[in-house]
Design a binder for these strands. Structure first.
Length: 223
DNA sequence: CTCCGGTAAT
DNA sequence: ATTACTGGAG
């Protein structure tokens, strides 16, 4: 219900339908490969991906797998920082990320974080580690612990703001707005679908509004 | 708001 | 040459 014909919830639904049709198959594959990861591996992958495109993230991950065979907190804790930095270089922000990943490995060993079953407790423990923020922790909880969360990345944030789904720019406000409109079982998939849509259509630079199914419901439409 | 940052797209 | 990338800290 909207007097001026701009309804963000309708826009969101149209976008998800469109994304399902166009990127659904790809997204299914991504979900499968992500769910094979261990919790620790998922954490590492998510940290590496921070503010970095997927191609470069995969390069750094490839370097890690090649060097360690199997990635574990013990191995990360032992390796020297310079080596870790060299392996992570292609992902950018490599000094920050190396330190975060090393701190994380140490804390996991010291405080036995991987034994925590309770999602809320794990969330709080992970958030204490410098370099792990709400987006990273939400991704891990959603993918590895099946929590009904819809993690908000830069693409999803952009889409939400453009269609006017939320007036607040704060992380948890945007997340709450999305979760109000998207049923819990569908949230992980919606997360990936929205990212694909944000990369391909609702792009940051030159959004393809002519190709967008929600353009007439969108506050920022250039069509 | 700025910084970290190599890489690819424009 | 500039901009953005599945962010987060100071």
């Amino acid at each position: 219900m909207c007097l001026h014909g701009k309804d963000p919830v309708v826009a969101l639904a149209l976008i998800l339908t469109f994304a399902e049709k166009n990127y659904g198959k790809y997204v299914e594959e991504v979900m499968e490969s992500i769910k094979k990861r261990s919790l620790f591996e998922q954490l590492i992958a998510t940290i590496i991906s921070q503010n970095t495109n997927w191609k470069n993230t995969k390069r750094a991950l490839h370097n890690l797998r090649e060097y360690f065979a199997k990635i574990s907190p013990e191995k990360i804790a032992k390796v020297d920082l310079e080596t870790l930095e060299r392996l992570l270089k292609p992902a950018g922000l490599y000094k920050v990320k190396s330190k975060v990943i090393k701190d994380l490995a140490n804390e996991i060993i010291r405080r036995k974080l991987l034994e925590i079953k309770n999602a809320e407790r794990l969330r709080n423990e992970l958030l204490k580690i410098r370099g792990i923020g709400p987006k990273t922790v939400d991704v891990v909880l959603a993918f590895s612990l099946n929590e009904p969360i819809l993690p908000v990345d830069t693409h999803i944030r952009r889409i939400s703001l453009r269609i006017g789904l939320t007036s607040s720019r704060k992380y948890y406000d945007i997340r709450r707005s999305l979760e109000r409109s998207i049923p819990s079982k569908y949230r992980v998939k919606a997360h990936l679908l929205l990212i694909s849509f944000g990369r391909n259509v609702c792009r940051s630079r030159e959004p393809l509004c002519w190709a967008c199914p929600a353009s007439k419901y969108c506050l920022s439409s250039r069509v």
